Amino acid sequence: MSKETENAFDFEDLGRKVKELRIKNGLTQNQVASELHVTPGYISNVENNRTAMSLRVLSYYAKLTGITLDSLVGKIEPEYRTTALDNELLSIISRYSDEKKQKILDILKIIDR
Rank of each mutant, 00 (worst) to 15 (best):
M53E: 04
E4G: 02
L36W: 12
G41W: 03
I43Y: 09
A62P: 00
D70H: 08
D70I: 08
I107H: 11
S91I: 06
S71G: 10
I43P: 09
S34I: 08
L27R: 05
A84N: 06
R16D: 04
K3W: 08
T5A: 11
L55P: 01
E4R: 12
F11M: 01
G66E: 10
L90M: 11
Y61T: 00
I43G: 06
I92Q: 15
L55F: 14
N48Q: 02
L89F: 09
L89I: 15
G26R: 05
V73D: 00
K63P: 01
N87L: 10
L55A: 10
Y80A: 11
I76E: 02
I43L: 11
S59L: 07
R56M: 06
S54E: 08
L27E: 03
V38F: 00
L90A: 05
S2Y: 01
E88G: 12
I111R: 09
I107S: 13
R56I: 10
K17D: 01
I104E: 08
G15N: 04
S94P: 00
V73H: 05
N30W: 04
I110F: 14
R95Q: 14
I93A: 14
L36P: 01
K100T: 15
K109L: 09
R95H: 11
Q31K: 14
S71P: 00
R50A: 04
E88V: 09
N45D: 15
T65E: 02
V32M: 08
I110D: 15
Q102I: 12
T83S: 13
S97G: 04
E77K: 09
Q31D: 15
T5I: 03
E77F: 05
T65M: 03
V38K: 13
G26I: 04
T83V: 12
L55S: 10
E6K: 13
I67E: 06
H37I: 03
F9W: 15
R16V: 12
E12V: 02
E12L: 07
P40G: 03
E12Y: 14
E99G: 06
I107R: 11
R113E: 15
S59Q: 07
V18T: 12
T83R: 06
G26T: 08
I110H: 13
D98F: 07
T5C: 07
